[in-house]
Every structure is written in structure tokens, then in C-alpha cells.
Design a binder for these strands. Structure first.
Ligand SMILES: [Zn+2]
Ligand SMILES: [Zn+2]
Length: 263
DNA sequence: GTAGTCGGACGGTCAAAAAG
DNA sequence: TTTTTGACCGTCCGACTACG
């Protein structure tokens, strides 16, 4: 069982609901493991809800750089316009990164993440007509007799793409309107299998901001970045499954829940 | 109130290292 | 080859000072 530093739960096995549960040596989900996951979730919630990441521009203008002040992508940038420095507002120089520099040994790595899901294209229509849906943040899972759940505070989140979804397929996206960045939030659906009845329920939207990478022609999410809408069109299939973009002024923007990745 | 200064926390990049 | 790591180095938060 392993958790990575970005509050992502790494599970083994396939994408059945049980798979995102961490396994102990005997491949069973012991109470202690459940307790550990519960703690992890609680911790990640505590650590991430209040704190949003500072967003930097790729290149500050020379004036903002000199003053150590926030810049933006405009040229002239807003700060220079405000201060009447439009004439000198240009990108600051950045030096080339040097190659051939030896490094010390790295710490032992975790295993590759295989069989990452490939997500269908999010269309502009989905983009244009976001659905806002307040869903109780309940993380729940049934595995044979054991069930555990963790209640999140009220938050906007998205339903699972499919009501029978058993895989980590729920997601949403939203725009940071200040810079028109599109963020993706991925979660997963789950099935409550209590009392021999299968009840599907909307996703708790266990989310994380995921970037994408292309492997063998498949574009799949990796962690912690963002894309603009232009990037989405460029990347083609680099879009989340699910149809419910959430705009930036909803609470979810600042939240960062654990995300499951199947090994 | 505003603007200027700046130490250093924070974050994004990307080649090296490691794994497949 | 793909994936992960982490050093590098840039951004800019926030605390401060100066000025009117
Ligand atoms: Zn600027
Ligand atoms: Zn500028």
C-alpha cells in the first residue's frame, strides 16, 4: 500500500470499487487499513481545503520582476498599465537550463502506474453549459461486510458519469476566470453494496487537479496542473470523462481531495 | 492611503536517474 | 523506452519603509 505525497491514493488491481481500497500483505482490507485510509482522507482534507495553490505566470515582465510583484500574461501587464510603465513592459529574460550536470542518486521510486484510463473528449457544449449540483461529500465504499465512509463538508461536486460506474470515472472541470485556465477535477463513482442490494449513488467527487500526458497515443491524466481551453482543442482527447464543468466561483475550486489511481 | 524594497516561501520546469 | 525525481531558478507573498 502506498500513498503519494499529493494526497493520491494508489491502489492495486483493476478498477472495480474494491480496487481503490489499499491492500495489506494478504490482499485483504483489514480494519487497520481502513482506519489508515480514513485518517489519510481526513488529513488531506485538513491540509488542502483551506489552502489554494499560488499561481504564477510563466514569465513576469521586467517591471514586476524587479519589484517582486504579481504580473500577468498581458503586455503591457495590468500592473504596468496602472503605474504608467507600459512602454517598458516586456518579458524578463530567462536563462537556458544547463545540461550534463550530474546529480546524486534519487530515493527509491514507486512503481509505474499502468492502464491509466483514457478519457473521452469534452465538447464545447459541455463546456458552455455547466451543471451545478450540490452533492453531499460522502466517500463510501462497501467491500464484502465492511463499509467505511467519510463525510466531507458541503461542497459542489459532480455526479458519476454513469450511475453504474464502478471505476474512477467521475470528473469535472472549471475555469479560473482570472486567467481562463481550465482545471480538471477527477473523482470516482462507487457502489453501495450493502444488504445484497446494489445502490448506485452519485460520485463523491474525490478530486485532484490533474494534468495530462500522452503515452502511446493515449492522453491520460497525471497530477497537478492545468490546461487552457486552447490546449484541450490541441490535445484532442485530453479531456475528462463526465459532463459537468464547475465554474471557478464554486467552493470546489479550492479543494483538493484524494484521488485514486489504479495500478 | 499608495508605491517601493526585498527575504525567502513557494511553484513550475525539465534533464538526470530509475524503472520497464 | 517511459516514468519519476528533485535541483534549479523564477515568481511574488507579505512585511516592511517612505512619502504625502
Ligand atoms: Zn508585469
Ligand atoms: Zn508589465
Amino acid at each position: 500500500m502506498q500513498f503519494d505525497k499529493n494526497n493520491i491514493i494508489i491502489a492495486t488491481g483493476n478498477t472495480s470499487p474494491a480496487s481503490w481500497m489499499p491492500f495489506d500483505e494478504n490482499n485483504t482490507n483489514s480494519d487497520s487499513v481502513l482506519a489508515e485510509v480514513s485518517t489519510l482522507i481526513a488529513t488531506s482534507k485538513k491540509n488542502t481545503i483551506e489552502k489554494s495553490k499560488r499561481k504564477q505566470v510563466k514569465n513576469a515582465c521586467v517591471n514586476c520582476q524587479k519589484a517582486c510583484k504579481k504580473c500577468d500574461d498581458g503586455r503591457p501587464c495590468k500592473r504596468c498599465v496602472k503605474l504608467g510603465l507600459t512602454a517598458t513592459c516586456r518579458d524578463s529574460d530567462r536563462k537556458e537550463r544547463k545540461k550534463g550536470v550530474k546529480r546524486g542518486p534519487y530515493k527509491k521510486r514507486q512503481a509505474y502506474i499502468k492502464d491509466k484510463p483514457v478519457y473521452p473528449k469534452l465538447t464545447e457544449e459541455h463546456w458552455a453549459t455547466p451543471i451545478f449540483e450540490p452533492v453531499p461529500q460522502v466517500l463510501s465504499h462497501s467491500n464484502n461486510q465492511s463499509i467505511y465512509s467519510d463525510l466531507y463538508e458541503d461542497s459542489y461536486c459532480v455526479p458519476s458519469q454513469s450511475t453504474s460506474s464502478l471505476s474512477p470515472t467521475s470528473s469535472s472541470s472549471f475555469v479560473d476566470e482570472s486567467d481562463e485556465t481550465l482545471y480538471y477535477a477527477y473523482g470516482f463513482g462507487y457502489t453501495n453494496n450493502n444488504n445484497n442490494t446494489i445502490t448506485t449513488t452519485s460520485s463523491p467527487s474525490s478530486t485532484s487537479m490533474l494534468d495530462h500526458q500522452t503515452i502511446s497515443g493515449n492522453t491520460t491524466p497525471i497530477q497537478n496542473s492545468s490546461y487552457s481551453w486552447d490546449d484541450i482543442e490541441t490535445y484532442g482527447n485530453a479531456s475528462p470523462i463526465g459532463w459537468n464543468p464547475i465554474l471557478s466561483d464554486t467552493i470546489i475550486q479550492l479543494q483538493h481531495y484524494p484521488t485514486m489511481i489504479c495500478l
